[in-house]
Design a protein around this nucleic acid. Sequence first.
DNA 1: ATGTTGCCTGTAAACGATTACATGGATAAC
DNA 2: GTTATCCATGTAATCGTTTACAGGCAACAT
Lengths: 353, 353
Amino acid sequence: MSQKAVRIQDVARAAGVSTATVSRAFSNPGLLSDATRKAVEDAVRTTGYRVNQAARNLRKQRAGAVLVLVPDLGNPFFSQILAAIRAGFADTDYSVLIADTAEYPDRGRSLVDHFLDARIDGMISLDGALSARDLRLFGRSGVEDRIVFACEWVEGAAFRSVRSDNEGGARLAVRHLHGLGHRRLAHVTGPRGNILTSARRDGVIGECRDLGLPVRDAWIIRGDFSLQAGHAAAERLIAMTERPTAVICASDMVAFGLISGLRGHGLSVPGDISVVGFDDIEMSEFYVPALTTIRQDRTRIGRRAAALLIDQLKLAGNGDDAGSARIETLDVTLSIRDSTASPAGSAMRDRTG
Amino acid sequence: MSQKAVRIQDVARAAGVSTATVSRAFSNPGLLSDATRKAVEDAVRTTGYRVNQAARNLRKQRAGAVLVLVPDLGNPFFSQILAAIRAGFADTDYSVLIADTAEYPDRGRSLVDHFLDARIDGMISLDGALSARDLRLFGRSGVEDRIVFACEWVEGAAFRSVRSDNEGGARLAVRHLHGLGHRRLAHVTGPRGNILTSARRDGVIGECRDLGLPVRDAWIIRGDFSLQAGHAAAERLIAMTERPTAVICASDMVAFGLISGLRGHGLSVPGDISVVGFDDIEMSEFYVPALTTIRQDRTRIGRRAAALLIDQLKLAGNGDDAGSARIETLDVTLSIRDSTASPAGSAMRDRTG
DNA sequence: ATGTTGCCTGTAAACGATTACATGGATAAC
DNA sequence: GTTATCCATGTAATCGTTTACAGGCAACAT
């Protein structure tokens, strides 16, 4: 590339040593005598040598890269996790590739191809809904333990994963609204088949039952984490004869779409309806009204996922399936802002911490 | 990796041909006789062979990857561009790496290292503010023509670039507000030193002059494209004695922050103040109020940037600096929504197309 | 029969590193 | 003085491809 790249051979010549010695100066400098190490360092400096990663990776039988699979790059929820993952890999010599799940079903390409092509050594998936075919192929090629799931996960599979306490978060939201005096709660879910959809839905319904609040099928509205889904859910709410006084959304984006839709119909938030989101993306603080939401520690999720994968890559198939837990569940917290209030006609104050 | 990977040698043996023939079956199948090609194809299928990209890249003296440099991954503005860039590279065998500029100033690592390490073959930068040191090193290593700038660019440098008509967009915004009857316009800019800051500011000021509108220094408020900057700008506006009736923001995020800040002080948008954004990210349609903004064709920007870089990589330093223009400027449009209206006391209607 | 031409295929040398193994010399132990 | 031990270094094989070059063979013209 560029002019004429300087090779390890050139450094060796300049320093008056063998290529093996130069290589050792990088990989295990302690092996060399002080004088030799100095000589090599000088030679590296004068020649401007940089080790060729492609060659090194080939020889070391690794790809030197990991893949992060994101369901939807356009959703700002993921970016902070990405940043944390990248930070986690900053001290390693792995490159971080990012791909959008949406790219995959097409043209018969499978995710496992990346492993088999020697393009990646490991993967962090923020998407729990991989195709059955992909999952089967992962198993067959023995790459499962170089895959970590973050946020989402695959039920019944043995992959490592880092996730938030989704059910607990949903329960927090219900308790908050209950404390404000709400008794009729709706829930806009994620997409069918998504693991977060059921976890959060179960939390909402479970806590409602525990608190003796009514649970109606009509109040559980199918969504898909998107702005559009929230907007559509507003129509459904408007049309209800016995309208809930508060809505828990499966994501902040849904909450924004919902509020936008409600306002379009002249309903005010939180005046007429309270709305709670899930995620606490940056925008939540600056929406109008600022959004009450369940905060996930995205930096922590990303950092832990990276750490887990790095651990696994170190073991590199020597079978020694070391200590760390396969599943980490991180606590969530409630960020109370302006989109929730006591229902009209109620004088109750928030009793939630 | 994994079990025992199938090598080209294995396929050759299975098909009863040499490795060269197998290689040719992939790179230039036309060279082979029908019978041989068939035999190789069968052998590939039965063995499950996949070419090892690391080895191929080493031999072909390329990295097999390109880097996309993003100023702030957390800003959803960039994600759609990223998606388009990825799509542009989908048909190639390049991997797409994504990095955040924020990672770089640290630990003395330079961007050019990625080229010299044989980690990347080319780069698309969405950040125009690279360090002088990086730019110098790019020149010295002769990699400039494998770098394309998108959205932003470097003044006075010869890099290829794709960008929106920023000044034109700013002028559109001014004309729209003028048409509604506004006469006192403020502008929240991008950060100091950013090329978009000056382009958009010049557009706003230029069009104000052309229309005979007053231009006050106090009405040009420094920002940095972020939610926080918009929020801070609201404080400045509130404090003004002769307050503008409309504000043009350098980005949608700034506009959201601004509106949030104004609402916090009891001012309504567009009732008291009209607000125009820049970018038209997805959220703009769902903000409250839905945001009037300048739409950039982000898909087109990404696609063109990818195409430009792919062209350059094909030439691969054979010096034949082919046809395509070095700078492409794409048109922007005005998306009129609910955050702009005639100023209080005025009965004028929008006259803008 | 003898070139000449063209098509297909094989041989073997790269690409640029890492590392198992060998070696030589110094030091210590006997 | 001989042998064992250890440390620092060199030699050369290896990772899995691609591709320049060289043949071999058939068809065709002379």
